[in-house]
């Protein structure tokens, strides 16, 4: 982690509601280098909203504020939609949970990857085609020529997610944000997709933000893990240190999972405490800064 690709300081996302303002993200700060950063939390913890805020995908009436939100030293906070759109895809990409909803159902897979590439890199159709085939190869799709001609409904979930990854990585972005990329997949496919993503991110020296509810998965797959609760980061850990987590919330999350190798009669239940929401937190922004 020599320099940081993305700097986030005091990021807040607020939505107006009938009972006053609802704060989805409340002052999140972190740095992302060329590393794999996991963001873990339960539903409503603000983990997805953090990813969306970075990508400029929070829709009005939601509001995003931050002291600093910089990509490679350049502020990307509340950019006009036109510039943001250029940025998305070319420099930051996102892989969503369900490929079924993220792929255009009436375009062939090949056309979509080519379009994604040409939108950001330009070039002729032939070059785009070459690139698309290369990307499909990179995500270990065996017969890319055939897959190029298929429509999204003709491919399986795991294949769809691999295509999504191919599409998102075609323009060589610096950062990939993956929001629950494997939750819709079966366990046996999950590992494969993850290792493909992992390999690509490593080879290209990209930064990865991996958003997930699955602590164990994240710990296996990432370098560093942020644990979010009620819109804040309550703990930052090296993934290898996960089982030495200090915050009671993290500990609670870990112990509430049933385990095949350690059967218990009753699962420990997480007792949420009010102090987790607003209490003092001792968090270093990153291990080495």
């Amino acid at each position: 982690m020599t320099q940081s690709l993305l700097q986030v300081r005091n990021l807040r996302v607020t939505f107006p509601s009938r009972q006053g303002e609802f704060h989805a993200v409340r002052g999140v700060s972190f740095d992302l280098g060329r590393e794999r950063l996991g963001v873990v939390g339960e539903s409503g913890s603000g983990k997805s909203m953090t990813g969306r805020a970075i990508l400029g995908l929070v829709r009005p009436p939601g509001r995003v504020t931050a002291d600093r939100l910089e990509l490679d030293g350049e502020s990307i906070l509340n950019l006009p939609e036109r510039r943001m759109r250029k940025l998305r895809g070319s420099r930051i990409s996102m892989v969503m949970q369900d490929p079924k909803f993220s792929l255009n159902p009436v375009m062939t897979v090949g056309d979509q990857i080519m379009e994604a590439y040409r939108l950001h890199a330009g070039g002729s159709r032939d070059i785009a085609r070459q690139k698309a085939l290369e990307m499909l190869n990179a995500v270990q799709i065996r017969d890319p020529e055939r897959v190029m001609k298929t429509y999204p409904h003709e491919v399986s979930g795991g294949m769809g997610q691999r295509i999504m990854i191919a599409m998102m990585l075609a323009p060589d972005p610096q950062i990939l944000i993956a929001d629950e990329p494997t939750s819709a997949l079966d366990v046996s496919v999950r590992g494969e997709v993850l290792s493909i993503m992992d390999g690509l991110v490593r080879d290209r020296g990209m930064g990865l933000i991996f958003i997930s509810h699955d602590l164990n998965l994240v710990s296996k797959f990432c370098d560093r893990v942020l644990i979010m609760y009620a819109g804040r980061i309550v703990e930052t850990l090296a993934a290898s240190d996960l089982h030495n987590a200090r915050h009671p919330y993290t500990q609670g999350l870990l112990s509430s999972l049933p385990r095949l190798d350690a059967p218990v009669k009753r699962l420990p239940v997480l007792q949420r405490e009010e102090s987790w929401r607003d209490g003092e937190l001792q968090i270093k922004l990153s291990g080495k800064i």
Partner: peptide, 14 residues
């Protein structure tokens, strides 16, 4: 469900 809620429901079922 979230894992912490899953634990509650599993306990309830037991």
């Amino acid at each position: 469900l979230d894992v912490s809620v899953q634990a509650e429901i599993l306990n309830l079922l037991v």
